[in-house]
Amino acid sequence: MKAVTYRGVGQVAIEDVPEPKIQHSGDAIVRVTRCAICGSDLHIYHGHIPGMVPGSVCGHEFTGVVEEVGPGVQAFRKGDRVVGTFHTACGHCPMCRKGAYNQCREYGVFGYGVAFGNLPGSQAEFIRVPYADVNLRVIPRELSDEKALFCGDILTTAYGAVRNAQLQPGETVAVIGCGPVGLMAIQSALAQGAARVLAIDLLRDRVELAERLGAVPIVASETNPVAQVNKLTGGLGADVVIEAVGGPRTVALAFELVRGGGRISAVGVTTAESFPFPLATSLTRDISFRIGLANIHRDIDATLALVAGGRIDPEVIISHRLPLAEAVEGYRLFDSREATKVVLIPGE
């Protein structure tokens, strides 16, 4: 089958690789109909993720059709349209039973190398899904594959970040970063009851897209975002700040934007090992700070329902649709920020 493979820093390729086979009774083989290039795939592309061996299949966002199931699979059968979770969970370990699927003892990420479970990725014609009853969801009939695609990753990541911040109806939310996750966070915050969402990014075109989604635009390359947020909140700061970029600089900005007694939810993927936490300031200002891996299994059913109900439109972030064979160009476009989101279509 054709697949996108990692070849080294700044290099991916389209190669022929063996089709996946059932290895365990709970496995399913899915024929991929849509997959996408995620911002966290760029960490692999830039060589920041250990354990990526040249030839590894990339990708972790996908929808598809079930082609085969192992004898232990109960919830799915051949022909079912499904969306997969980007990270896997076993469903039966102590952490899964607590609902902390993102802390599963058998946690893995598709297409993220040896350090994350050594699971071949989804930028391919077929993918093997372990513990399929846990890691797949049937796509509602009224949803296209593209509308369901991001419920397995970035939409649910953003939704979970807002949920983790314990947003109260009528509060003001500031979102740092209007990339795909940030744009999903804007829609998620509005769906969960935010009165206003302040959208902050360096790039004007991304902020303008956020504005079309109902956010108040703040172009950080043209104005001081702290001053603007203070102006818009009467000097208080935002009730909730969602950090959707990743890294010490934007996390530090979140502490400047949040009001006293407010909450910060950091969901941007980072490879930084440490951050100078403002301990005394957080103490005196009563700031709550939360950071963590997305718990997709906890929230995926909610996001599928919101998309099906028309409350969130995930397709607005798609700027490019390319055949899988043009994935190398897709990575170039996404890495250079010429694309907001690239969807790849196997078989074209």
Rank of each mutant, 00 (worst) to 15 (best):
F289Y: 15
F334H: 12
E315R: 15
T271H: 15
E326M: 07
I242Q: 11
V251H: 06
L324F: 10
A327E: 05
V207I: 07
T271P: 00
F275G: 10
G261I: 05
G237S: 08
S265V: 10
I318P: 01
P314F: 11
D301T: 15
L257P: 09
P278L: 04
R298E: 14
V245H: 02
E243Y: 10
A280E: 11
G246F: 00
L203M: 13
A266Q: 00
A266M: 01
G234P: 12
T303A: 09
A339F: 02
T284L: 15
F277G: 02
A266E: 06
L306C: 00
I312E: 08
F289S: 08
L257R: 09
E256I: 01
A252W: 02
T270K: 04
V216D: 09
P248V: 00
N224T: 06
V229K: 01
A238K: 09
I291G: 03
A210N: 11
A339D: 01
R204H: 11
V241W: 11
D239N: 15
H320G: 05
L209Y: 01
L324G: 08
L209D: 03
R249W: 00
T233Y: 09
K231G: 14
G247R: 12
T340L: 15
E338A: 07
H297R: 15
K231W: 04
K231T: 12
E329Y: 05
N295Y: 04
V269K: 05
L203F: 10
N224R: 06
T340V: 13
D205S: 14
I242S: 09
E243A: 07
G235K: 00
V240E: 06
I291L: 05
V226Y: 05
V216H: 11
G247A: 03
I218C: 04
V240A: 03
V316P: 11
Q228I: 05
G310H: 08
S221K: 13
R290E: 04
A210Y: 14
L283C: 12
E256A: 12
D286T: 14
N295Q: 09
A272F: 12
L324M: 13
A302W: 09
T303S: 11
A210K: 07
R259S: 04
E273S: 10
E222G: 04
E256F: 00
S288Q: 14
L324E: 06
A325R: 15
P217E: 13
A339Q: 09
D201C: 08
L322A: 04
P278D: 14
T303Y: 12
A272Y: 14
D205M: 01
V267T: 15
D335P: 03
I218D: 06
L333F: 03
S221P: 06
I200H: 03
D335L: 00
A252L: 03
A302N: 14
L213H: 03
A280G: 02
A210P: 13
I242L: 14
R249F: 03
R249T: 13
A308V: 10
V258F: 04
T284D: 00
A199M: 08
L253E: 14
K341Y: 05
P276L: 09
D239S: 09
L209A: 04
G260C: 01
E315P: 00
D205V: 11
R311I: 02
T284R: 15
R212D: 13
I296A: 11
V258M: 02
R259I: 04
